[in-house]
């Protein structure tokens, strides 16, 4: 049977075309692979950068916030405290930045060939997965060195990752669609990522937030993710079910808004990019 394609003007909100994305899954694979290969082409350390980047930052934080400013780390070694957060945070900010820039960076491709545009931001999730994996291995090494054993709530790690991915890809799609039209988004990204980092408990502990504000604070999905990871691997507090629950709900909202906004504006991409 021959497929018939109808091309006509669309308007308003569009559903996410899962079927089209599935049909182009090989493109998603090669785009992700391309992202990884390009990043480490002609570099001496190669994938080693995936470790250095979060590790060096964690060390800087340890010196400045842990030793000099003496921020509390819930009784765990500060380096572990911050590196645990940095691993998730680096993956989050990596996806967000990559997804946001994906449309503008590939605008010649958008102008020359059809494919489901969502593939571009989505490829960031897989492209950054290697970095995340390598950084995680180092985390495991550190945990063994410090003699930490994870709690049974380790089965929640996939859920935490899901929250992380939904949030970053949702926000990334939204910003990518905006960046096609307003290039300012790209210039604001490094600043935005830094603001976001300090709004999440990366260098400090949620304990310093007044208790009555904590439920509101947990609306930031990364609060549940980071504190969840710390609870699992450092056992500094019981697993923060409420924060993770709140975070999951917000992440879904962010994901849906991002994707639908992306789909709504998608038809202008080739004209504006």
């Amino acid at each position: 049977m021959q497929q018939t394609t109808i091309i006509k003007p669309t308007s308003g909100w569009q559903l996410i075309d899962v079927k089209a994305i599935w049909a182009y899954r090989d493109l998603l694979y090669f785009l992700s692979l391309r992202g990884i290969k390009i990043k480490y082409a002609q570099s001496i350390l190669g994938v080693g950068w995936a470790v250095f980047d979060p590790l060096i930052q964690a060390i800087i934080f340890t010196v400045i916030f842990g030793n000099l400013a003496k921020l509390g780390s819930d009784g765990t070694p500060y380096i572990l405290f911050s590196y645990t957060a940095m691993v998730s945070w680096t993956y989050f900010s990596g996806i967000l930045t990559e997804a946001t820039g994906s449309l503008v960076k590939n605008r010649t491709m958008i102008g020359k060939v059809y494919f489901p545009r969502l593939i571009l931001p989505l490829s960031a999730v897989f492209g950054k997965l290697i970095d995340f994996g390598v950084a995680s291995l180092v985390l495991i090494g550190l945990l063994i060195y410090y003699g930490m054993t994870p709690s049974a709530t380790i089965i929640m790690v996939p859920v935490l990752l899901l929250i992380l991915i939904l949030t970053s890809i949702g926000a990334g799609c939204f910003l990518a669609a905006l960046a096609v039209q307003y290039r300012d988004i790209q210039y604001a990204m490094s600043f935005l990522v830094r603001v976001l980092m300090y709004s999440a408990p990366v260098v400090y502990s949620v304990s310093i937030i007044p208790e009555r504000w904590q439920p509101l604070y947990a609306l930031n999905p990364m609060v549940g993710v980071i504190e969840g990871m710390r609870s699992i691997f450092l056992q500094n507090r019981p697993f923060p079910w409420e924060w993770v629950g709140t975070g999951f709900a917000t992440s879904l909202v962010i994901f849906l808004i991002g994707c639908f906004y992306f789909r709504r504006t998608e038809r202008h991409f080739a004209d504006l990019a």
Binding site: Q2, Q3, T4, T5, I6, I7, K8, P9, T10, T108, M109, I110, G111, K112, V113, Y114, R267, A270, D271
Partner: peptide, 28 residues
């Protein structure tokens, strides 16, 4: 561009039967 679904038409419609490949550039 409209035929290859790169950009949407403002009016009208196109019906295509079969698998379409478009080559607007080599080496995309």
């Amino acid at each position: 561009k409209v035929l290859s679904r790169i950009t949407e038409p403002t009016t009208g419609q196109i019906a295509l039967q079969g698998r379409v490949s478009s080559l607007l550039e080599v080496g995309t």
